[in-house]
Design a protein around this nucleic acid. Structure first.
Lengths: 114, 114
DNA sequence: CAAATTCGTAAGTTATCGCTTACGGTAAGC
DNA sequence: GCTTACCGTAAGCGATAACTTACGAATTTG
């Protein structure tokens, strides 16, 4: 079991944490992002029924785009936004590597407590 | 393939997004959290070599604790902090459900482009 | 018991962030 | 061609958040 701890330590990679974490912190921006979960939407469609103005939604979409979380595409005068999966994978990878270390140490912690 | 899309839509759960997301947004606080990745540490040990003061680290630890991401334990005059894995699982679950929808739609998007 | 170490919190300051209103630019409809 | 719809950005404002310094509480050490 000492070997297990050593393995985890070796796996602790000096990995950069994704920008997605910073961007997804704001609740309103998260709501915008989650509206794209069921499929591509235009800006007006996203803003419809939200407690903030349409320009505010545009600003959130800009931030999401810069973080690589969404892609946009013109469609007449409208602009269609969709979730860009690869950025989500990056976040997932970061969390997974973290999860490996944390869970293992958590098991050790519980065993020691026993 | 229409059935696949339908399955994904049915799996779209009205799930609350974890507080961990808000707390892990700040880069400095993320650095504090990542210092606990290799094992439990005292506050002074965490603050050593960081660009912010020790009280700042204490404040970050307080936020992490309120989000359930860390647990603390007195040890003489010191206080030992460690990562609390279950909160990490909650974040992982949120991301996973998101991932299912996004990845499927991303595949559809690429196929349509083909 | 006194000195030293470790830590949390309060108070105050500064910078950043999210929002609104206002405006201009572009494409579709009549 | 003129109007309408849709969108991005600039400017300005208010609120929040992160940081520093200062202080006091709790524990160990000599």
């Amino acid at each position: 079991m000492a070997a297990r701890v050593q393995d985890r330590a070796a796996r602790s990679a000096p990995e950069a944490s994704p920008k997605a974490l910073t961007v997804l912190a704001d609740p309103t921006r998260r709501a915008v992002f989650e509206r794209l979960r069921s499929g591509p939407r235009s800006v007006s469609e996203i803003a419809r029924g939200m407690p903030v103005s349409r320009p505010a939604v545009s600003q959130h979409l800009k931030a999401l785009k810069q973080a690589g979380l969404v892609r946009d595409e013109p469609r007449g005068t409208a602009r269609i936004y969709r979730i860009h999966a690869p950025a989500l994978l990056e976040l997932r990878t970061w969390l997974d590597s973290f999860w490996d270390d944390a869970l293992g140490r958590y098991r050790d912690y519980l065993e020691d407590d026993q």
